[in-house]
């Protein structure tokens, strides 16, 4: 029973959620809605556990007096401080200030760094280590050239060829990739529904 019950529950809930998408019935809609709400509530509790794990890991680092104890201390102060400001009743201006003037700029800074990381990654990928990299480099340089405003002046065929490359081989490749992902997603979901995979049991 200990083994069978989770399988019946998981497969049953999965099946009901699937039917909720396909069948317009008030009864199944209500069950589907309740299941979705249940997932949100469970995910919220899992998030609390995750935050406790974060606090415990950094608490231990702080206590261990290691090299990065200052950073761990800062993280804990920020975590507890933001939490306190969030639960205190009131207009929430302090929380909005933290969000607008600390969180958002930090996010923007990290995102801006992506441009530099992308350049480094592209440099690595374009080193001619194999034929794949050579094709990638050749096609990228050609498309870069074909999309320049003055490419038409070099040759009238250049922009047209660039457009053809994007519209035919690139789109075909993307569609093939998406079809593969869709099939993989469907089969993975069916594996859980049929209890071939039981991720809820750690298997």
């Amino acid at each position: 029973m200990k083994r069978i019950l989770p399988i019946i529950l998981a497969s049953g809930c999965g099946l009901l959620a699937l039917l909720d998408y396909l069948i317009a019935s008030p009864g199944i809609d209500a069950i589907g809605g309740a299941l979705s709400e249940g997932v949100i509530i469970l995910a919220a509790f899992a998030l609390i556990l995750g935050v406790l794990n974060l606090a415990s890991v950094h608490g231990r680092r702080l206590a261990a007096q290691g090299e990065r104890r200052v950073l761990s201390g800062l993280l804990l102060v920020a975590l507890v401080g933001t939490l306190a400001l969030g639960v205190v009743p009131g207009p929430g201006q302090a929380l909005a200030w933290i969000f607008n003037y600390l969180y958002m700029p930090l996010q923007a800074t990290l995102t801006a760094l992506l441009a530099f990381f992308l350049m480094i990654a592209v440099y690595r990928a374009f080193r001619l280590k194999n034929s794949d990299a050579a094709i990638l480099l050749g096609v990228s340089l050609f498309l870069f050239l074909a999309q320049l405003p003055l490419s038409g002046a070099i040759s009238p065929y250049l922009p047209a060829l660039g457009e053809w490359l994007l519209a035919v081989p690139v789109t075909a490749g993307m569609r093939g990739l998406l079809l593969g992902v869709a099939l993989g997603t469907m089969v993975t979901a069916l594996r859980v529904l049929l209890a071939i995979d039981q991720p809820f049991r750690g298997e």
């Binding site: 990739l177 993989g184 993975t188």
Partner: peptide, 21 residues
Amino acid sequence: ALTGALLYASLDEAVFGEDLF
């Protein structure tokens, strides 16, 4: 697909789409 392109450029060995499954 878009993140896959970024990861192809940055990882030593990358898998895409169906290979992940």
